[in-house]
Design a protein around this nucleic acid. Structure first.
Lengths: 161, 161
DNA sequence: ATTGAAAGAACCCCGAC
DNA sequence: GTCGGGGTTCTTTCAAT
């Protein structure tokens, strides 16, 4: 791609992770630039693919997604890509990781309640041909759940080289 | 607390999960309301706590958080709240779930590389008095990773760009 | 890259239905 | 709750440094 990120870029990223609706004026004030420059920085970060999207975060209970479950999935090699594609397409599936260790995949899903969980496992997951075995853990409480990345070289965000 | 969400609220939530920077004009167009009404809906959803935040999503690799790991943690009852608080405060910790099953907690962290992972486990996680045992899985590939909730009563529940 | 200023777009308060 | 209008704030563009 191109040029490296500097400290100002990192600060802006950190601010936008905490508040995606921060105005250019706010950003400019915090990082010590003019409004135009701050705006230009954001535009660059988006066009360079550093910022890949903007999400509103919702209260899970209010929208009927209060139950969170972690599901280990063992898959056969045959039909694995199709099964993954089918799962990724489902709105209940919030994460799908190909993991090292005893199981093939770890999936995080959110549904309304245990009935909906049961329905998902029986009607969506198990019918997939590649799915051999599953093991479900309930998230009894999500103490933290964010997509905000630690930003290398930012004090409030992670470690340095 | 108060009134229930209607279909329009759900649609707006879905749209804002996919694009938190959608203008009131866009929202109004999609749900079939005036700009004023759409704006008022968003204001209400925020003040009622349905929308709890706005996040920019960043490319993990670009910001130096390319390595994702899932860590099972067994904890003693003594000192458990302090350990959880310490972990939640760390920017590398993206999720911390109290889970059912053989282990106490499942934590998702993001760091730069395996060296940083090793450092985190040795210098942050293990020194916590309550932490008895840990088991780390590497996410070899995150096929999906979102905070967009499925919205009950909305057909195209939220997946993002 | 950064800046100030001007043009354009968006948001927000308000009174009416 | 919804709507349109008018004032205000924000974003975007532009010429210049």
């Amino acid at each position: 791609m191109h040029s490296e990120m500097d400290d100002i870029d990192r600060k802006i990223c950190g601010l936008l992770q905490a508040n995606a609706r921060a105005s250019s004026a706010e950003l400019a004030e915090t990082v010590g630039l003019s409004v135009s420059s701050a705006n230009e920085r954001v535009r660059r970060l988006v066009s360079q693919g550093v910022v890949v999207g903007w999400q509103a975060r919702l209260d899970p209970d209010v929208v009927g997604a209060g139950l969170c479950a972690l599901v280990f999935i063992d898959m056969d090699y045959e039909g694995e890509p199709e099964a993954c594609a089918a799962l990724v397409a489902r709105p209940e599936v919030m994460e799908l990781h190909h993991v090292s260790g005893a199981h093939s995949y770890l999936m995080k899903i959110r549904v309304r309640d245990s009935r909906a969980l049961q329905a998902f496992l029986q009607e969506v997951l198990k019918p997939l041909p590649a799915v051999r075995r599953t093991e479900t853990l309930l998230s009894l409480e999500a103490l933290k759940e964010t997509t905000a990345m630690p930003i290398a070289g930012l004090d409030s965000g992670g470690d340095d080289a």
